[in-house]
Each structure stands twice: as C-alpha cells, then as structure tokens.
Deep mutational scan, measured.
Amino acid sequence: MDPFVVLVLCLSCLLLLSIWRQSSGRGKLPPGPTPLPVIGNILQIDIKDVSKSLTNLSKIYGPVFTLYFGLERMVVLHGYEVVKEALIDLGEEFSGRGHFPLAERANRGFGIVFSNGKRWKEIRRFSLMTLRNFGMGKRSIEDRVQEEARCLVEELRKTKASPCDPTFILGCAPCNVICSIIFQKRFDYKDQQFLNLMEKLNENIRIVSTPWIQICNNFPTIIDYFPGTHNKLLKNLAFMESDILEKVKEHQESMDINNPRDFIDCFLIKMEKEKQNQQSEFTIENLVITAADLLGAGTETTSTTLRYALLLLLKHPEVTAKVQEEIERVIGRNRSPCMQDRGHMPYTDAVVHEVQRYIDLIPTSLPHAVTCDVKFRNYLIPKGTTILTSLTSVLHDNKEFPNPEMFDPRHFLDEGGNFKKSNYFMPFSAGKRICVGEGLARMELFLFLTFILQNFNLKSLIDPKDLDTTPVVNGFASVPPFYQLCFIPV
C-alpha cells in the first residue's frame, strides 16, 4: 500500500478516535471549553503556568470542569470545598494515580508514587510505618536530621561569610537525610558517588519541569519514536535504579534480621516474612523503585522550600529577627534545636507554614484518578478519569488567608500570638494520596531553619526591599529566582 495512503488512514483513525473520546459521556461530565481534535484544549493552557490557566477557566466554568490534554480527559478541581469533598470525603474513590506514560515506562507500575490498587496500598502502608518507626538502627529519624543539620551548619561556616548561592548546600542536606534513612549512610558533600546522585536528581527535576515532558505524557507515541530530553530522564532513572540495586545486594549479604539498620533492611525482612506468599507485593523490584521514589520526592521539594525560605527571610528581616528572638528565648545557644521545641515556638512554626503556603511549591499536585465511576456534584466521572487538583486555589484562598499574595506569618497566628491551624494548609496535597514523607519534610524544615538561624545572621547583597521573591514557574514547580547571601556567624 502507498505510504501516503497509510499515513492518511492513520491520521484519520487518530482523528476519529479523538472525536469519539471527547464526545463520549460529555453530557455527564462537568462543563469545559470545547476541545480541538487530537490536541484537545492545549492551546487554551499556558504550559509554563498551568495553575494560572486553571484559575482563569474556573471563573468561566465553575469549581469543577473538564479539560482535554491531547486525548487525555481530565476533570479539574478548583477551590477548597471541591478539593476537600473529593480528596477527603470521597478519598477512596479519588485515590488513584493519574496516567503518566513516562513514569509507567520507567517504574513499570512498581513503587509508591505511580503505583495503584493493592500494590500501592500495601507499599504505602509499609513505608509510612517504617518512616514513623523511630527505632531503626537504634537511631531515631530526628537524630538523623539533627546530625545532618549540624553538618549543614559546618558547611555554611566554610563560606566564611562571603557571598554564596545556597542551592547546592541546601540540596545536599535533605538528600543526605533520605540516604541515611534508606542506606544507613550519609555522605560527605564532596563524595563523588553522592555528587553523581545529586546531579541525576537535579537533572531529572529540570527535565520533568519542561513543556516537552508534558507533551510526551499527552502524546506517548513520542516516547519511542522521537529524540528528546525524555530519553535522558529514562537513562538517569535507570542509572539510579541500578545503583540502588547494588546497595540492596550489599544489604542482603550483611543484614541482621533482628537489628534492621535502615529502610532497605526493613523491606528485606518483610520480604523474608512473605516469601511463601506468591501474591506478595514485597519484591526486589518494588524495593528498588520505592527507594528511588523516596529519593526523588524527598530531596528537591525540601531543598527548594529551604532555598525559598531563606530568600523570604532576607526580604523580611523583621520576621527573621522575631524567629531568632524566639530561638534565643526557648533554645538558647548551648544546645541543639529539637522537635519538642516546636510546641513552644508558635512564631517560628507560623513562619515555616507561611513559607510553604506562600511559595505554593507544587501548584497542581500530582494528578489523581478516580478508581470507579463516581457521581460528584451531579456529574458522572468515569472510572480512570484523571483528576487535576489546584492546590493554589486552596493555599491562596483570600477568605482563609487575607492578602494571600503577601508573605505574612500572621496567617497562622491567632490574636494572642498562638499558632493557628488551618484546614486550607495543603502543600502536601490531601486525602489518601497525601505525601508519604510529610512528617519528615516538616521535621527537616523546622530543624534546618532553626539550626541555621541559631548559628548565623543572614545578610543580603542588596537592599532587602529590592529582592525579587516572585516565583519562577516552570510548569511543574514554583522555584525561587537566583540569589546570593552571606551567612554571618553569630
């Protein structure tokens, strides 16, 4: 058959498939802009700032609406009420993970971030239990974070109060905490193996944040037939998995079943207990991918939040002064901060919360999916439909947070200066898919920041009023603009 005829037939089939998918069930789905064949609503979305586009569309179609990214149908949730109703009140029905062709290629359905069903539930339950087990290797997770915080302070001392970009050092600290939990080992910041790991993690975040990856996920045929950065992403992930597998083999040879040292040991012990169960989800494949998931999810998000926190503290020296006064009063100079201190430091706690609220790190979270046909607000959402959640619409709700575009710790303080919780605080998402490392991340943010401010004054290279804190939105995360500062020993 003539190649031209084959091409026309293929394009015609794709067009018909697109029209059929977009028209099927439209009477039951939430409203939304009319999609174009094949490309859907992509032309109506700013790929570099999806969150802003969703906010604009919500003003037209309401808090629940339908979009098509290519052939992929998505239902968008915008605003606290619908997000709570879906992710919390109907948590089980909305607990699936959205379709990610690239991740599915890399992870093969294993791990904790992109798995679904029984596998996801069992691996998540085990990971939560293990991360909360403060007795691994007779050292609590808090001990590990405190140790890394001391190392971080010593690295900052080496800058000798000269101007520096904190990106690298602030990236090393949370990565080392995860390494300590998974591998029972922290690395020197100049260790070549550690630097290679950091390089792969950072490069992957840069790649994932590009519009090209959005295109690959919406048109998965590209993955096999086109060159691009997605190939580098898959190569980096394969490198990390190979490295983790080597460490798993080392653990198998040296493990003491009665004295687990780290996450890998705990997983291997669980595998041993379930070795007679042919349906067990505790396999080497799941261990390797879960460890890679924890490394990827637990490094860049925390380091970016820390980097943004220091920029905001530079911009608002009056806030920094209040935090340091609270540190001096509650902790002093002669001991290290600990998590028990947080309950006695409402202002510092409010500042950490406000940093996370203000920066809105992951504006749309990772997409969910419905696990069955769901009736939601008089609409029928078919099983498997991807759910896109606007966390921006919750964290920047102007009824809950007056002047949401302003950095103001009073958003989390009552009139008496006591810490005030808010149900709208969802930087880790909400419901059954809430970030498994939430507790660890909150511990790291509090301890790293208090250790830094206990030991250093922060000095800006320019007038604080002239510092730009506008986030650089890159399609996946909101990151701070480049800046330098000086760490002046107190």
Rank of each mutant, 00 (worst) to 15 (best):
E272M: 10
T371K: 13
F282Y: 11
L467K: 05
F376G: 00
P471A: 13
C175Y: 06
Q192L: 09
K160H: 11
V323H: 00
P402I: 11
G296P: 02
E281P: 14
R97I: 02
I331H: 01
N259F: 08
C338R: 09
L245T: 08
N258L: 10
P346S: 06
R307F: 04
L313V: 04
E104R: 13
V145G: 03
I223G: 06
L201S: 07
H411K: 06
G475M: 15
L11S: 11
N41D: 03
Q146G: 10
L43A: 09
K247Q: 12
I169M: 15
K190R: 13
A321Y: 15
V75Q: 00
N56M: 13
F419D: 01
L467C: 07
P3I: 12
R73L: 04
E285T: 10
P409G: 01
K138V: 10
S162M: 14
G27F: 11
E285L: 06
P404Q: 06
S24Q: 15
D349C: 15
P30V: 01
A430F: 06
F183A: 07
A477N: 08
P317S: 08
S365W: 04
K247F: 13
D341S: 04
H99D: 07
L268S: 03
F376I: 13
C172R: 15
K190D: 10
E241W: 11
V83P: 02
I223A: 06
E203Y: 08
T389Y: 08
E241S: 11
I123Y: 01
S95V: 06
K399I: 15
T283F: 06
I222E: 03
A292I: 11
I182Q: 01
P346R: 04
R433S: 03
V208S: 15
R261V: 04
F114T: 11
P30W: 00
T210R: 13
V5Y: 15
F114E: 04
K118W: 11
Q214H: 12
H251D: 00
Y61A: 01
P367H: 04
G296Q: 14
V370G: 01
E246G: 10
L313M: 11
F65P: 02
R157Q: 10
H316Y: 14
L11C: 14
D262F: 00
F239C: 12
